[in-house]
Design a protein around this nucleic acid. Structure first.
Ligand SMILES: NC(=O)c1ccc[n+]([C@@H]2O[C@H](COP(=O)([O-])OP(=O)(O)OC[C@H]3O[C@@H](n4cnc5c(N)ncnc54)[C@H](O)[C@@H]3O)[C@@H](O)[C@H]2O)c1
Ligand SMILES: NC(=O)c1ccc[n+]([C@@H]2O[C@H](COP(=O)([O-])OP(=O)(O)OC[C@H]3O[C@@H](n4cnc5c(N)ncnc54)[C@H](O)[C@@H]3O)[C@@H](O)[C@H]2O)c1
Lengths: 207, 207
DNA sequence: ATAACATCGTTACATATGTAACGCTGTATT
DNA sequence: AATACAGCGTTACATATGTAACGATGTTAT
């Protein structure tokens, strides 16, 4: 299993897996690179090339076996054991995300939420328990949390980020519209909705 | 003003503008490519190259004038007149987005929200009026809406998308985890949070 | 005034990413 | 059993994107 996979490739693999899961729900057993490509919005060659990365082999005239391909992508993308995820900032967006991920990916489950609003502590929102910010170190240690989601106001994001890194976070999904300063070994994935909306408007205008 | 700008370039320009706005709030008048690059997480050469695209010229030893650079990027990215945006699906995520964009970008304002839940129609949420789905054509025509945000459940997204395209949408920001089928001249910008979270986890694990 | 210097704009180069071509493989059909 | 063929894996190619190098330029200090 090669350890090399580009950012883009990982993104597509994640997408393929979701599409394959839908197919499985519809009792589809096998799929050709063409069809998977069409659903993902890429070329068939791209799909086949991505399969090389995960080391999965299809069968000519049969295509890919949906179930075992999901399994293979999982082995490549996921950690060996289910992973615990934490979210910080139980506001409008944070609550929406908690409800969205509730029960969605068993291997990547949000098990703890943190907020500095005292009234949040102790609550259970969308199946996720809320804690005070000062409890981050202990909860992270108990659950071996390495992946976190930041949904606090922009002016609080860096401060919160530092706490999370100290507590052992390695991968950060950041929704605050600020560039976080982190050590080199930490990975930050930014979701920038303002930029996305401006891109939609720009390219919608100029085809 | 060249009409060529890659997806990535547009994304960075949008980011630069936000960073520059922050600088302006702090009364910073001018900025060097190095500092802007650092804040954006790119190289100084990248910043200078991007400035070529918008046709803006800085001054050696002075750098870029913050205020006029914001103006130039705006002329490049934005439509000549303020643009109206619509959102469909006033649920958990939709409401969070309405509150987030409320009064943020004057040139790109969410003026209408749509939902098929009758109790939503007539409400005003975060300064945005809600309508029934069947009112899409008239409201789009009245406000010349070309950019839309889709936050309906996945199994409703394609249907809603078709309505929006018929009503004149050109740029679509899609939060539903499905690949939308649209005519070639329509631009779809997907925000895929599941993929983003899986990427954060994957690259956090393997540096 | 002029020389020194930091930064800019631009061109040339390097890497990353995506596309297409091609031979191989396994199934189905006669 | 032989043959046709559709799809796969792989390699080679094309394009897109990012990085660095270099000469031009304007400001500041002597
Ligand atoms: N709402 C959206 O759709 C949206 C879209 C894009 C980006 N964002 C960004 O996401 C972040 C959250 O947005 P929101 O709309 O949910 O805001 P919000 O104000 O509704 O929620 C923020 C939450 O963070 C908590 N908080 C504040 N400081 C904290 C701290 N130091 N430690 C822990 N918790 C703290 C608050 O108590 C609150 O519950 C912001 O940075 C915003 O810019 C939001
Ligand atoms: N909540 C999140 O953080 C999150 C994250 C990523 C993606 N998403 C995606 O965003 C979408 C919305 O998520 P949500 O959590 O807000 O769901 P939600 O159920 O809270 O909201 C959906 C809203 O859409 C409305 N709706 C349903 N069908 C409609 C139709 N045909 N026309 C108009 N309106 C319709 C519903 O009345 C409801 O108000 C989903 O596709 C979800 O997968 C959500």
């Amino acid at each position: 299993m090669p350890l090399l996979a580009s950012d883009r490739t990982v993104g597509r693999l994640s997408l393929y897996r979701r599409l394959l899961s839908h197919l499985l729900q519809e009792k589809v057993r096998s799929v050709f690179s063409h069809r998977l490509a069409e659903a993902a919005g890429v070329t068939a060659a791209q799909v086949r090339r991505d399969m090389m990365v995960v080391g999965y082999n299809g069968i000519p005239t049969k295509g890919y076996d949906v179930e075992s391909l999901i399994e293979s992508i999982g082995q490549f993308l996921d950690a060996p054991d289910p992973e615990a995820v934490a979210l910080v900032g139980v506001g409008n967006l944070g609550r929406a995300i908690l409800s969205y991920f509730d029960g969605r990916r068993p291997n990547l489950k949000i098990v703890a939420a943190f907020d500095n609003d005292p009234s949040k502590a102790g609550q259970v929102i969308s199946g996720c328990r809320c804690y005070a910010v000062r409890q981050i170190p202990e909860v992270f240690a108990e659950n071996e949390i390495a992946t976190v989601i930041i949904t606090v106001p922009a002016d609080q994001a860096q401060e919160v980020c530092d706490l999370l890194v100290d507590a052992g976070a390695k991968g950060i999904l950041n929704f605050a519209p600020v560039g976080l300063r982190v050590p080199a070994y930490i990975h930050v994935e930014n979701v920038d909705m303002t930029t996305s909306l401006e891109k939609a408007a720009y390219f919608g205008r100029r085809p």
